[in-house]
Simulated assay, not measured.
Amino acid sequence: MNDGSPFWNELLKLRDPAWSDPTEAQQDKLTADVQRLAYDLGAQIWSRAEEIEDVPPRTRDQVTGYAPDRYLATLRALRAVKDAADSAAARVASEAGHRGAGYPQLGKAWDITRQAARLRWPGAVSVINEANNQEPVHFEMYGGEARVSFHPEEGGWWWIATAANRKVREAPADLTYDTSEEAAAAAGVFLAANTTTDGATA
């Protein structure tokens, strides 16, 4: 719950970076844990599992160690682990998006581009979190005005501007910016280039 205290307000702000990369030891342990899970699952789905139930433990270990299809069963289990990780990632990405993270942050966490994150988790970013200052920004410059707003579905910022010479332009529909400052700067370039009032570009 958010009681409006400085602690909660600070907690709800996105921190960049939001993590530190796993150490080599942490990655090695994770790999070992995943391999153990896959090996256990592989033992359960192995087509010979029932055939060797009555084999003495020592002989069973030997059979397990030499049978090539036992390793194929483990490989199939690892594919199930990947599918489970992808499913879990989609849920976590959605949770992050509903708490104010955008596609730039989701992509960075998954080590992919913002565009790739949008394709991987469409709809994950669907709400604006006021705590992250994603409210629209309106400003006047060079005799014109611009509005910068956050597009949650795109996971980025967009702009539309009316220059002093009454020309109107907006960012292309397929283009968004990672920050409101970047979008405002692009709008500012347009305003600066159209400061005359006779319809000509300055």
Rank of each mutant, 00 (worst) to 15 (best):
E53C: 02
A192R: 13
W46K: 01
P56N: 03
A43M: 08
E24N: 04
P17N: 03
E50N: 10
H151D: 15
P122W: 03
V92E: 05
Q105V: 11
A43C: 12
M1Y: 14
R169H: 09
T196K: 12
R120K: 15
P172D: 13
T179G: 00
D86P: 00
S20N: 08
D54P: 01
R48D: 12
V137F: 02
G100R: 11
V34W: 01
E51P: 01
L72G: 04
I45N: 08
S20L: 03
D61C: 03
S87H: 10
P17E: 11
W110I: 04
A124V: 03
R118A: 15
A185Q: 14
A161L: 11
I45D: 04
I52Y: 04
A117S: 08
V148Y: 03
A183K: 01
Q27S: 09
P57K: 13
V92I: 15
H98T: 12
V81A: 12
E153P: 04
G155L: 10
E53R: 15
Q134F: 08
A85I: 13
E154F: 09
W110M: 15
R15D: 04
E135K: 13
S149H: 13
Y39G: 11
P172E: 07
P172F: 02
T201W: 05
T176D: 08
W159L: 07
K13M: 10
A202K: 13
W19A: 11
A84G: 06
F150H: 14
V125N: 02
S94I: 03
W46G: 02
A164N: 12
E10T: 14
G107A: 04
A164Q: 14
T113G: 13
T64W: 13
E145L: 07
N133Y: 11
L78P: 05
A49S: 15
A80P: 00
A109Y: 06
P136L: 02
W159R: 02
W121P: 07
T195V: 13
V189M: 09
W159Q: 04
V148S: 05
A32H: 05
L78Y: 06
G199E: 11
A77I: 04
T31D: 04
E130I: 05
R60F: 01
Q35D: 15
L75Q: 10
G4T: 03
P57C: 01
A84R: 12
G155N: 06
G102Q: 11
E135R: 14
P136T: 03
E154Y: 07
Q27M: 11
P6H: 09
S5V: 09
V137H: 07
V81M: 03
E10N: 15
T113E: 10
A90S: 14
A163P: 11
A193E: 15
A67N: 13
Q26W: 00
A85Q: 12
E154M: 15
R169M: 14
N129H: 04
I45P: 05
L119D: 15
D3W: 08
A101C: 14
R79S: 08
S47C: 07
V81G: 01
A192G: 10
I160M: 14
